[in-house]
């Protein structure tokens, strides 16, 4: 049985951090920049980065529609920071396009500029006590407007939500190895497909060629 393959949207942002972090849980990953690269993936990560940049490239690459179809397929999805913004039902500051799959309202940069970024304790019944989250120019969830589980809060604000198999975080679990939120996602992926391997596709800097579907390590 082949191990499950996690597609990581790689238009811009910290997609490589997600790949490293998932490799730590023995998951195979593939960078996704074109509709064809969505074929055959068993789970999906929407990484951090700039949501305006990602939206523009999703449109240019003809990827907005195909990605939406995959998101509707009910596979495990982990969306962090900018990724969460893409999934929200309503986005403010400014108002922008999104998939509307998580019934939440998010305000971009809702905790302020980079000066206010940092690592904060999370309150949660499902994460181990003492779990923290790194918030970087993070979106703020100002309303949960429908059927959606709030798994963690920061000073009372929802910051980790789940609806079905969509897991969305305002913070960046990918910046900490072995983070419990990544573990939860890996669990969802593993439960889907049984045992997992441990392979990551990557590019070789300087060679000029992408090396995809090739294991390393």
């Amino acid at each position: 049985m082949t191990s499950p393959l996690v597609g990581v949207l790689a238009l811009q942002g910290d997609f490589a951090d997600h790949q490293r972090s998932l490799a730590g849980f023995g998951l195979r990953t593939r960078q996704v920049r074109t509709p064809a690269e969505l074929d055959g993936i068993d789970a999906l990560v929407l990484p951090g980065g700039e949501s305006t940049t990602m939206l523009r490239l999703l449109a240019v690459e003809g990827l907005f529609g195909p990605l939406g179809e995959v998101l509707h397929r009910d596979i495990p999805v982990l969306a962090t920071c900018a990724g969460l913004i893409l999934l929200a039902d309503r986005v403010e500051n400014p108002v922008q396009r999104s998939y509307g799959l998580l019934p939440i309202t998010v305000v971009r940069n809702g905790y302020g500029r980079q000066y206010h970024s940092g690592t904060f304790p999370l309150e949660s019944d499902v994460l181990p006590s003492g779990t923290t989250g790194t918030f970087i120019r993070a979106p703020r969830i100002t309303a949960v407007t429908g059927d959606c589980e709030v798994l963690a809060r920061r000073d009372g604000d929802p910051v980790l939500v789940q609806k079905g198999r969509l897991l969305g975080a305002c913070f960046h679990p990918e910046l900490a190895p072995g983070h419990p939120v990544t573990a939860r996602f890996a669990g969802m992926v593993g439960a889907d497909r049984g045992t997992v391997g441990g392979r990551t596709e990557s590019r070789v800097a300087g060679s000029g060629f992408a090396v995809r579907d090739v294991p390393f390590g």
Binding site: F15, G49, G118, I136
Partner: peptide
């Protein structure tokens, strides 16, 4: 985490 993490978000951009 806070400073380098910010710069990580700019990658590929």
């Amino acid at each position: 985490v806070s400073k380098i993490g910010f710069c990580e978000q700019l990658k590929g951009g």
